[in-house]
Design a protein around this nucleic acid. Structure first.
Lengths: 135, 135
DNA sequence: ATACGTGCAAACCGTTTGCTAAGGG
DNA sequence: CCCTTAGCAAACGGTTTGCACGTAT
């Protein structure tokens, strides 16, 4: 069988992800983890994030064409993404159970979960654009 | 200024996308368009899909998948995605205006749009999995 | 002692881009 | 005619993988 080992690298990746609320990309998390483990490779970060998600200790925030982000908060919650810089924040709104209920009623899928994402331009990027236009 | 030209390629890409309700990837659409234009390249399909989206004649379905999918239906509507095969279908449920309203109230973003996606396993994949497990 | 995990670099894969030729307006 | 667009192939960027060594159990 398969015995999972708690290596230093895995532990630090998990700990640092759980500390963050910034929905980091693998690369961002890699930079952070390097403060504690300078030699850790990006591949190891990816592999451990994958394992974390498998185990249900984290989740991927996947948008095609952008960098994948990871979230140490596995409760059901929604996100706001900046269309320009890609940063993701939590959206303070209660989940709508109707979404999965409707899906169960009307689709033949075995429903697993649902995702809601608001897309907008964050204040920082708004200012940048204004500057760029005004120049 | 900039004058957009209606080439044969652009026209066929648009026409074929509008015919479909299957939310194809660029590659899938490329295969279909090739029946009418055997020499068309995947780059041309990508470029024209990008233009279609800019013009508001199509939209990208970018939530939770590796491959980007495109939708010729630009009205606000939600999707169900199979976590196994990646296929996307429309979800017959009325949009929730509260989602964007809440975002406008509680975030400082300039809200542009929102996306809702139910993730599940489609019947086909369910059977495949069962077969695989039973075999 | 025995695999599982790591670091490294190369492979991968969907998407984008630079270039040159073609053709729409 | 001019300038956008197409086709081709190479580049790109994030993610994954093969390999040999290291290390937790």
């Amino acid at each position: 069988m398969f015995t999972r080992r708690m290596t230093k690298q895995r532990q630090v990746v998990l700990e640092e992800l759980k500390k963050l609320t910034s929905h980091p990309t693998a690369e961002e998390l890699h930079q952070i983890v390097r403060h504690r483990l300078p030699g850790i490779s990006i591949a190891t970060v990816y592999r451990n994030l994958e394992i974390l998600c498998e185990e249900g200790n984290a989740q991927k925030i996947d948008v095609a064409g952008t960098r994948r982000r990871f979230d140490g908060d596995t409760s059901t919650h929604y996100h706001v993404r900046c269309a320009r810089c890609g940063r993701v924040e939590d959206l303070p709104i209660d989940p709508f159970p109707q979404i999965e209920e409707t899906a169960r009623k009307n689709c033949k899928h075995r429903v697993l979960t649902h995702r809601v994402e608001v897309v907008g331009i964050c204040p920082d990027c708004e200012h940048l654009e204004r500057d760029a236009l005004t120049f």
